[in-house]
C-alpha cells in the first residue's frame, strides 16, 4: 500500500441554477482520501454528499456550476478534457449506486456488460475475456458464475445485482471506488454480505473507498475516517473512532443521540429542532446555526474554520475556538 493522498478536494463549490434562483448546494468542501483508505461521507437527505461524489466523476447535470479543485493523483479532474476524463471513469475511479438495476442495462446479459469494460478501456488481459469476466464474478462471490454470466439483470436478486455491478467496476482495477449508498436498498443479512465483500475487495485490490451513506451503522462497520456533512458544508471530519466516541459538533452530537438505541421506557430520543434550510437562500455563516441550541452571534456571520480536536479530527464550529 502506498502512502500519501490519492484524491484531494479543495474548496469545492457547486451551484445549481433553478427556476427559483441559484441553489448553493456545496459550500466550500475540502477533504482528502489517502491510498487504501475508506472515507465515509455521511449526512441526511439534501446535505450534498451525493453531489460531492458526482462532481468527482463530473456526472453533475448541465445546470450545475462547479468551482474549486478535485486533484486525483495530482491532476485536477475539473480541468480535464472529456476524452481524458473517460479514461478515468470506470477505470481509475469506479462508482456503484444504491439501485444497481437502474445502473445496469436491462437488455444485455451481465457477462457482456462486464466484458464491455475490458473493451472500452482496452485493458490488458491474460486469458480470454470470458475467463476474465468469470474470474471477476468469482471474486465478487457470485455462485455459479458460468451460468450467471448469461443472466439478464432482472433475473438477479438485489444483492446479486450489486455484486455484478461491483464486478463491472473491478475490471479496470480502479484505485478509487465511490460507493453511493451501496446497501441502502438491501436487506440486513444481504447488506452484511455486501459490506464484507467490499471490505475484502478493498484489501485484494488495494482500493481506496469513498462511501456515501446516511447510515451510521454502515460507517461504523466500514470507514476509517468520516466526514459529517450538513447543508453543503462539512461539520466535522476525523477518524471514525474519535467522531463516534467523542463527537464535537452540535449536529454530530444531535445525530448520534437521535439514534434509536435503548428502549422507549428508558429514554426519549434527542430531537434536532427545525428542518433542513432552503439552499437558495441558505443561512449565512454556519448553516447549522438556526437549529443549533448553542448558537452565538458569530455563528450567524462567519463561516467557521476548522478547529483541531486531535490528530486528524477537525470540527467546523465557532463554539470550540480556544475552548
Amino acid at each position: 500500500m502506498r502512502n500519501g493522498t490519492l484524491l484531494k478536494i479543495e474548496d469545492l463549490y457547486v451551484n445549481f441554477k433553478t427556476d427559483e434562483g441559484i441553489a448553493k448546494v456545496i459550500d466550500g468542501v475540502s477533504l482528502d482520501i489517502k491510498y487504501g483508505e475508506v472515507l465515509a461521507l455521511m449526512g441526511e437527505t439534501g446535505c450534498g454528499k451525493s453531489t460531492v461524489a458526482k462532481s468527482i466523476l463530473r456526472l453533475l447535470p448541465k445546470n450545475a456550476e462547479v468551482r474549486g479543485k478535485i486533484l486525483f493523483k495530482g491532476t485536477n479532474i475539473l480541468d480535464l478534457p472529456e476524452s481524458e476524463l473517460r479514461k478515468i471513469r470506470g477505470k481509475e475511479i469506479g462508482m456503484i449506486f444504491q439501485d444497481p438495476l437502474t445502473a445496469l442495462n436491462p437488455v444485455f446479459i451481465v457477462g457482456n456488460q462486464i466484458s464491455e469494460m475490458f473493451k472500452i478501456h482496452k485493458l490488458r488481459i491474460k486469458r480470454t475475456i470470458l475467463d476474465e469476466v468469470i474470474e471477476l464474478l468469482k471474486n465478487v462471490r457470485i455462485p455459479d458464475p458460468q451460468r450467471r454470466y448469461y443472466s439478464y439483470p432482472f433475473e438477479l436478486s438485489g444483492g446479486m445485482r450489486q455484486r455484478a455491478m461491483i464486478a463491472m467496476m473491478l475490471a479496470g482495477r480502479p484505485s478509487l471506488l465511490i460507493a453511493d449508498e451501496p446497501t441502502s436498498a438491501l436487506d440486513v443479512t444481504i447488506q452484511a454480505q455486501i459490506l464484507k465483500l467490499i471490505m475484502d475487495l478493498r484489501n485484494d485490490y488495494n482500493m481506496s473507498i469513498l462511501l456515501i451513506t446516511h447510515d451510521p451503522g454502515v460507517v461504523a462497520e466500514m470507514a476509517d475516517r468520516i466526514a459529517i456533512m450538513y447543508a453543503g458544508q462539512i461539520a466535522e471530519i476525523g477518524p471514525v473512532r474519535d467522531i463516534f466516541l467523542n463527537p464535537q459538533h452540535p449536529y454530530t452530537k444531535g445525530l448520534l443521540r437521535a439514534l434509536p438505541l435503548g428502549h422507549k421506557e428508558e429514554r426519549e430520543l434527542e430531537n434536532i429542532p427545525g428542518r433542513v434550510p432552503n439552499l437558495i437562500e441558505p443561512p449565512p455563516g454556519c448553516r447549522f446555526h438556526p437549529r443549533c441550541p448553542h448558537a452565538i452571534e458569530k455563528c450567524k456571520k462567519e463561516k467557521p474554520k476548522p478547529v483541531v480536536v486531535s490528530n486528524e479530527h477537525f470540527v467546523f464550529c465557532h463554539l470550540l475556538r480556544g475552548g
Binding site: D215, A220, E221, F244, L245
Partner: peptide, 14 residues
C-alpha cells in the same frame, strides 16, 4: 443472525 447482521453503531464492536 438478523441481530448480528445489523450494523452496530458501536465502533468498538467493529
Amino acid at each position: 443472525f438478523l441481530m448480528l447482521s445489523t450494523p452496530a453503531v458501536d465502533i468498538r464492536e467493529r
